[in-house]
Nucleic acid binder design. Structure first.
Lengths: 341, 341
DNA sequence: CTGAAAGCGCTAACAA
DNA sequence: TTGTTAGCGCTTTCAG
């Protein structure tokens, strides 16, 4: 069933039927009722593609996604996506997930933008210096960044959790417990979240009157294996820290494995705080202190809102949201630092 | 930049440019080279929407997805999706994820099919009696089921792991170790995978000369909480089983939590086998015996292949694949059943 | 309030 | 091998 047929059936022009269906005000109430009834009766739905071509909009937003186990394992990210699609669907928009190998990621952006496959893009896992954002800004293509970057001269729409303050919370807590040797296990510092958390760590130490010890700051870990290796290195160090902060929950899994393997226990032998918390599916989750990014699903809703505003032509300078992480204290950081010196 | 402009630039007709770009054989080699060079130079990419309208294809397949934590936590499912998008993207097709609340899931199917938003649909988490498959078959809309159903009179394309034989493997292993009181924790038996595993359980017991004990067959669990409750019930039962099989890895997380909480250990106090294995991120994963569904990413590739064949008009009767699960033995089932009776 | 007509940007017969 | 000409199914001016 297509529009023309429906119109013929009703003895109306396609234009009127289209207007009735799309809720234009000028249509006679009775006519509209007839049209809607007939559409329902015959199960008519407008061909999405044709409508898209006519209106110029695709009613979909894209997420270019290099599928990697580490992303899939991040429950916060997945919840954000879930919230995002929820909100988009309310607006009759789709989320199109486009997988791209890391190597040709930029080329994929080019292709998607140039082919107008989507109305806008969500950029996740931002880098400190992010060529994707440069490209999008250069082409003036609508996007919302989930996470910020540090090299953009022009404003852009973004949502982010406050990585600096979140890490400061963690350090302040440990310092208050008397810890003076606090270690940090970071993801690669080219990733913006890791870079900011790293900065927050240094800031936090400074606030506590401590100075950073390069030996206690390991980076590069965004996998369980790397986290495990880093933790083993710390535990075997001559100058062992009394507390460890892990800046991401994927590496944290390896950290916990390392503790198990060496017969150590978080909260007894060493203090541990995980940024993002252990994946909620993880059994011991409740026992590990965490800096949590609250309400990830709602964060997805907000990203959708920012996107719609951007598509609506609102000034990007106002389209930012910075949410505060929260400290969820549990047993794992309960070791007073003084026991260890 | 649109096709017409590019054509004008090259002093060619739009048709020729289109043909050159789309690899039609009749185009002069030199002409094609010129066109491709110019397209590259100007970063021309065909407008996807216009192409879609002209060809009648959307070059995308859909996955209608009720976002729930349990799905997101299932790494096998996520890997399958990853593999699916990988293969589709090779064919320049997208996977469109459309989120739908459980309540209006069927209505969403109607809307998507009628609006021709996608060329085909992947149906996941099939039910023993699945109205979605009925609807798709009735409308003759292309689809591939990930998992089977049991009420379809007509053939359809599907991919599935052999749930019956997988569960038989688990039972046979435990029986061989001397266990005579084997319990099963199942997801809802309206879900086809759970139903089939349940059947495989009964079959497996029969092969071992054992008869099923209703007290040891609990169902309804597809969440950590439900798994935990079921396990606690079994552990506190007067007639305690010496071995437990959990039919899904989400509930299994709760099962492990229950063991921890009651101070029991899998492989020492009770034998445990998990269908699907514990999520790979889970620390103790390696220690838990599992029936694994091998190569989920390749399974995604296969689903893509089946879909393309279906869109190509191949007979659905031949478009099925049944993969065999594998037993990965570990310490968790090492308790001889004879110790317990 | 409704209709006629002109596209949206591309592809695909049919001609040449 | 290339060009001409119609559409794909809808929306949207512009008239009426």
């Amino acid at each position: 069933m297509k529009l023309r047929q429906l119109a013929a059936l009703l003895q109306l022009s396609p234009a009127t039927v289209s207007r009735a269906l799309n809720g234009f005000a000028e249509v006679n109430a009775q006519t509209r009722a007839r049209v809607l009834a007939a559409a329902k009766l015959h199960g008519y739905h407008a061909n999405t593609i044709a409508r898209k071509l006519a209106t110029g909009r695709t009613d979909s937003i894209g997420l270019i996604y290099p599928f990697k186990p580490s992303d899939l394992g991040d429950p916060v990210f997945l919840e954000v996506i879930a919230g995002l699609t929820e909100s988009l669907n309310e607006q009759h928009m789709d989320l199109v997930i486009i997988s791209a190998a890391k190597a040709n990621e930029l080329a994929t952006y080019q292709r998607v933008m140039s082919g107008r496959r989507v109305d806008g893009l969500v950029v996740a896992r931002t880098l400190v210096s992010d060529p994707r954002l440069d490209l999008l800004q250069e082409k003036n293509f609508p996007f919302v960044a989930y996470g910020r970057s540090q090299q953009q001269s022009l404003p852009y729409a973004w949502f982010d959790y406050d990585n600096v303050s979140g890490m400061q919370l963690a350090v302040a807590r440990l310092a208050a417990l008397g810890h003076r040797k606090i270690a940090l296990i970071s993801a690669s510092l080219t990733m913006n979240f890791a870079n900011q958390r790293h900065q927050g760590f240094i800031d936090g130490l400074a606030s506590a009157g401590l100075s950073p010890d390069p030996q206690h700051m390991l980076n590069g870990g965004l996998s369980p294996l790397e986290g495990k290796q880093a933790m083993i290195q710390l535990l075997n160090a001559v100058d062992q820290p009394s507390a460890v902060i892990v800046d991401n929950n994927i590496a944290a899994i390896g950290v916990v494995q390392a503790l198990q393997q060496l017969g150590k226990q978080a909260g007894r032998d060493i203090a541990l705080i995980v940024f993002g918390g252990l994946p909620s599916l993880y059994g011991e989750s409740a026992a590990i202190s965490a800096i949590m990014q609250p309400k990830p699903r709602q964060a997805g809703h907000v990203i959708a809102k920012l996107m719609l505003a951007r598509l609506n032509g609102e000034d990007v300078a106002g389209l930012n949201q910075l949410w505060q992480p929260e400290l969820i204290a549990a047993a794992s950081d309960a070791v007073p630092g003084s026991l260890h010196g």
